[in-house]
């Protein structure tokens, strides 16, 4: 056996061990796009909440809670949130399946299923908790809780994909806890967590793995 042959053999083994246990087709580009959608969404939400208010009430307590006085606002915000989520998920599916084809990994296989399963437990728990609190009129919990539970879901999903995802999750959790201490800046933290962090991490992942 030539040296190069052995090297190839070892590289093939390493690749297979990774490909069989981790979903390495997660697209960095979809992270960047999700961040952009979330930033636009936050901008629109800001407009919905504070349009017509003048001067902008930055120093008011319970920033989000105060804007939601009319029932129309709540529904348009919910709709906006669902739109952003849907756009991000669709983008992630399209780009990751393209990536999966290139890396020879099934998009809907054993690993992507465990990835989604482990992600969905904290995500569904958090989503239901937020809805329950919203039903009670506690809107202040939305931003911190969505950041914290999203972070938890990333940490638990990171066992099945790149380890970098774990650090993104930890950052989201930290940001969520800070947001909980500063309830009047909920929307700002939401934009930071879902917008800016996604763009930064998506960019890093793109440079590291996509090409």
């Amino acid at each position: 056996m030539e040296e190069k042959e052995i090297h190839d053999e070892l590289a093939a083994i390493r690749g297979l061990m990774e490909r069989s246990s981790k979903f390495i087709s997660l697209s960095g580009l979809s992270g960047i796009l999700a961040g952009i959608y979330a930033s636009i969404g936050s901008g629109v939400a800001y407009y919905i909440l504070y349009a017509g208010d003048y001067p902008v009430k930055h120093n008011s307590h319970y920033f989000i809670a105060e804007g939601i006085q009319s029932i129309i606002n709540i529904y348009s915000l919910l709709l906006l949130g669902i739109l952003v989520l849907l756009a991000s998920v669709v983008t992630a599916i399209i780009l990751s399946s393209r990536q999966a084809k290139r890396k020879g990994q099934p998009i809907w296989g054993k690993i992507s299923q465990s990835l989604l399963f482990h992600m969905s437990i904290p995500l569904l728990t958090g989503g239901l908790l937020i809805l329950i609190f919203m039903y009670d009129g506690s809107y202040g919990i939305v931003a911190p809780a969505s950041l914290i539970f999203y972070g938890l879901s990333l940490v638990s999903a990171s066992n099945f994909t790149f380890t970098d995802v774990k650090y993104l999750g930890l950052c989201e959790i930290a940001l969520g806890l800070i947001a909980a201490c500063l309830p009047s800046y909920g929307l700002l933290f939401w934009a930071l967590g879902f917008g800016v962090l996604h763009i930064i991490y998506g960019g890093m992942m793109y440079l590291k793995y996509d090409r």
Binding site: L16, S20, S21, G104, G109
Partner: peptide
């Protein structure tokens, strides 16, 4: 055979169909 062992070394268990898809 070496490929099969690599997969089983990295994962606790692996099922026949996933193995088939992975190794093509």
């Amino acid at each position: 055979r070496l490929q099969i062992m690599s997969v089983l070394a990295a994962n606790e268990r692996y099922d026949f169909n996933s193995l088939k898809d992975l190794l093509n």
